[in-house]
Design a protein around this nucleic acid. Structure first.
Lengths: 237, 237
DNA sequence: CGCAAACTTGATGTTGCTCAAGCTAGGTGG
DNA sequence: CCACCTAGCTTGAGCAACATCAAGTTTGCG
């Protein structure tokens, strides 16, 4: 794995760290003080499921996929993680999933033992982590509804909307980037890559989206995409 | 909804409250001080998805189901909640799901505003809630793997093992109680009630489990059930 | 420009869903 | 105490959605 260690986080700009959001400047400085930046190239592994958790990471730039594997190789991606998200926050000390970079990634890394101490010492920090974790729980439960009860079209529509909401640049143009491959999307939505392809094609033919390249899609009719995502579209795709 | 308010929690035994587990006696006393017990009969609704969260609840006895609905009525049960679990812990103030009793239930209720104050004031309390929430997140991500990638047999096997692990009385005898109906199980596993029935029958014919009544099942071959749950069983059911 | 990887499309197969009909158990009233 | 009645469970037949297997086709990189 190719990595490169960068200057200490405190030396950069702590206001841009999601870890410290909403905390008092003094608290934020203490937390940023134990962080250091690090770069990973695409397709490298940050940690494995079950591995002892040595650190907590905040994504500064780029995208990672988190996934679980079954013994026979079936894979469930539990999340695509981008700027501002925390990973490795496992109180039981064992990572819950494997983390791999999808693109080149910049991280801010916090060593486990020092981090744990700050959780107990810095006022409001545990509360901040509680809010972050609860947000992840909310997302996981939405995904349970998607995985358990939505059709292929509903899943893809929901996914495209999620990616659009997350992409800062997308709001204006309606153009969304999908850095992950079709089989990554499939393993996130409980589909296979062929079904992802076919369903994207279907949406394209129906004029709901258009593709400039397989990686760059354009949302033409957002309202209909929302209806499709919620299964509200009359004829029940 | 039939409810009945019981004495203040502090008057009972705070050591039995999961909310306070691991906290110092003084902290535990403060938290228990704002709790009060309450009973609900089976098939009553505690709160609705999207409703403003007025309180946090700890289950003392009985079982509830938490679920999300789609506009057309499709339902995903996100959890069956039993003794020691907390519900309603929504920092964004809106409930993420509907909560209904499956059996008669006893709860310990904590009013929202006072609870929120204690989260910030009582040392270690936010940390305790973080651990609890993280545990829920772990369960949700396991369920994502189940919903997205497991077959019907693997889902039912996983479910039975989960229920067995949770049931205190089951460890010895191997007998597990399933207070929820077949369609509840289906809506939890992303199956319909007929498929649940058929799959349970299949496991029964294969001698992995036996049924005294539809509600009382007996695990005959735990090892094989574990293999089935993980998709490790040679011929790939 | 060539090559490999990823995406798309097609033909066929399988799993689990739908619709429909019994069956069983537990609760109620005679 | 028994017979009925109803809700929920089980079983069956046919079907739809998605998976699998197998070519092509595009894309992006060297």
């Amino acid at each position: 794995m190719h990595t490169e260690v960068l200057p200490n986080a405190a030396a950069i700009d702590i206001n841009h760290l999601a870890m410290c959001r909403g905390l008092k400047p003094q608290a934020a400085t203490r937390i940023a003080g134990i962080g250091s930046f690090r770069r990973l190239t695409s397709r490298s592994t940050l940690f494995f499921e079950g591995e002892r958790a040595a650190g907590i990471y905040e994504v500064v730039r780029g995208m990672l996929r988190l996934y679980k594997l079954m013994p026979d190789g079936r894979r469930q991606i539990t999340g695509f993680i981008t700027k501002g998200h925390l990973i490795g926050l496992a109180p039981q000390q064992r990572h819950l999933h494997t983390a791999e970079t999808v693109t080149d990634v910049t991280l801010c890394c916090y060593p486990r033992t020092r981090f744990d101490r700050l959780v107990d010492e810095v006022p409001g920090f545990a509360r901040r982590l509680l809010d972050v974790t609860f947000d992840e729980l909310r997302a996981a439960q939405d995904q349970m509804l998607l995985l358990g009860r939505k059709t292929a079209v509903e899943k893809i529509a929901s996914f495209l909307l999620m990616m659009a909401d997350r992409d800062d640049t997308a709001d204006e143009t309606g153009e969304v980037e999908l850095p992950m491959g079709r089989s990554d999307i499939g393993d996130y939505l409980g589909l296979n890559s062929e079904t992802v392809s076919r369903t994207v094609t279907k949406l394209r033919h129906d004029g709901v989206i258009s593709l400039r390249t397989p990686v760059r899609i354009n949302i033409c009719d957002r309202d209909q995409l929302v209806e499709l995502a919620n299964g509200e579209s009359g004829s029940e795709y």
